[in-house]
């Protein structure tokens, strides 16, 4: 494993920790999109189907279990927890996530590495992950007062994707057989979606002012 990949996994983990911290200690999910969280739960469930079939490494297994458990528990908190769910900004979280599920599934049926159930689900999870952040970005744009944790959460998620791209470039030169066009292209699209957010996040951090996205 290279340094970019490890750093990417760590920022991904950090994003989940930040979100759980917000939910657990502040008992708030303000500014967090339930739509995005549900999409991530689907992404991990679809991608980690190999969990019980292929053993890669202890690291791999533990990380997969962490992402599965955290994503489903976040959804549970936002839907069921009697204090947390009251802080959910339902009125502004209106992105129709069902409309991205179907296109992703169709795309996965058409473009995959192999036409098997697991490979189609893998491709589906890659396409879905690329666009799963959209409801969250829309919600942030509609939120007047973005709290720090919600901003950091999205920043770490974006950083994870950007670091994965560096990891792919590194792997391309060191492991010539390692070519996964599907994840590379989807990963680049996914990272580009954050570009605008990154700009405002870094600007606000540099000028030491509160993060605010233009409507």
């Amino acid at each position: 494993m290279n340094l970019f990949r490890l750093a990417g996994d760590m920022t991904h983990l950090l994003s989940v920790v930040v979100l759980l911290l917000k939910i657990h200690t502040i008992k708030s999910c303000a500014g967090i999109s339930l739509k995005t969280q549900e999409l991530y739960a689907i992404v991990f469930a679809a991608r980690y189907l190999d969990l019980f079939v292929h053993f890669m490494s202890l690291y791999n297994t533990i990380m997969k279990l962490v992402f599965l458990a955290s994503s489903f528990s976040i959804v549970w908190y936002m839907r069921q927890h009697k204090i947390v769910r009251r802080t959910y900004d339902k009125e502004h979280d209106t992105f129709r996530h069902q409309f991205i599920l179907l296109p992703c599934l169709v795309l996965a049926l058409l473009i995959n590495e192999k036409f098997t159930f697991r490979e189609v689900m893998w491709a589906f999870s890659i396409y879905l992950e690329a666009v799963a952040i959209l409801p969250q970005l829309v919600l942030l744009q509609r939120t007047r007062n973005i709290d720090n944790l919600a901003g950091h959460y999205v920043f770490f998620l974006g950083a994870y994707r950007a670091l994965y791209i560096l990891n792919w470039i590194y792997r391309y030169f060191t492991e010539p057989h390692f070519v996964h066009w599907i994840s590379w292209i989807a990963g680049i699209v996914q990272t580009l979606l954050y570009a605008d957010f990154f700009y405002y996040y870094i600007t606000s951090w540099k000028n030491n002012v509160k993060l605010e996205l233009p409507a």
Partner: peptide, 10 residues
């Protein structure tokens, strides 16, 4: 044949 399962990324 090359094994598909080098999908070690998360």
């Amino acid at each position: 044949e090359h094994e598909q399962y080098e999908k070690d990324e998360l």
